[in-house]
């Protein structure tokens, strides 16, 4: 599903260089649940954004389903993200002025059909947000917001979910709930790459990679 070859990402800040990913090489098989653990600032988010086609690496290549992600045009990468990848972020990144249904439907490319709207409603239902479709994200608790972000990530039936510290802002109960939904997606055949500095996801993950100063440690 995903193959990273010697992926290096160097940021230039105030005249100095910071290596965020250092010759990172790994593979994630289709249907696998991989947890990437490491301390803050070890390059986890950079890795996730690079895997999602959001950040071009300074060196190395990323293949997704056999396609070199960064050989694609920006429009092709955007299309790929829309159809095959779902993102879940620690800070939720919801659109504050859209209601819950609007936030979920935002993932839909083009005008959502009646079927897509029904599916969005079902997802809200499954994630315990039924009856709140017309509320705005600002009216939700942190746990509810993250569940909403998961619903949005699932709308297009992606093959891959990239989750960046999705439980970082949640209490243990809500964190477990979010991980449970990701695990359910995995059980349905989906691939999950979850980056975290905690151990909460280890029980669900098939494999855990450890990242330290941009390098793979195990």
């Amino acid at each position: 599903m995903i193959r990273c070859d010697e992926v290096t990402k160097i940021f230039r800040k105030n005249g100095s260089e910071v290596t965020s990913l250092d010759r990172f090489t790994a593979e994630v098989a289709e249907g696998e649940f991989v947890a990437v653990r490491g301390p803050s600032g070890c390059g986890k988010t950079t890795l996730l954004l690079t895997l999602g086609g959001m950040q071009r690496p300074s060196a190395g290549s990323v293949q997704l389903g056999g396609r070199d992600l960064y050989a694609l045009s920006p429009a092709e990468r955007a299309g790929l993200r829309s159809s095959e990848i779902g993102f879940v972020f620690q800070m939720f990144h919801l659109v504050p002025y859209l209601d819950l249904l609007g936030n979920v439907l935002l993932a839909c490319p083009g005008k959502p059909s009646a079927e897509v709207r029904r599916r969005a409603g079902r997802l809200l239902d499954e994630l315990g947000l039924a009856g709140r479709a017309s509320h705005r994200p600002g009216e939700l608790s942190a746990g509810e917001r993250q569940r909403l972000a998961v619903a949005r990530a699932l709308l297009n039936r992606p093959k891959l979910i990239l989750a960046d510290e999705p439980t970082g802002n949640l209490d243990p109960e809500n964190a477990a709930e979010v991980i449970r939904h990701l695990a359910e997606f995995h059980r349905g055949g989906g691939t999950v790459v979850l980056v975290t500095h905690g151990a909460s996801a280890d029980t669900h993950a098939d494999r855990t990679l450890r990242l330290d100063q941009g390098q793979l440690k195990s």
Binding site: M54, R81, M91, L106
Partner: peptide, 14 residues
Amino acid sequence: RQEIGILRALGKGG
């Protein structure tokens, strides 16, 4: 800015 970021992540074009 965050909204633009998430729209990009969701595959919305420029």
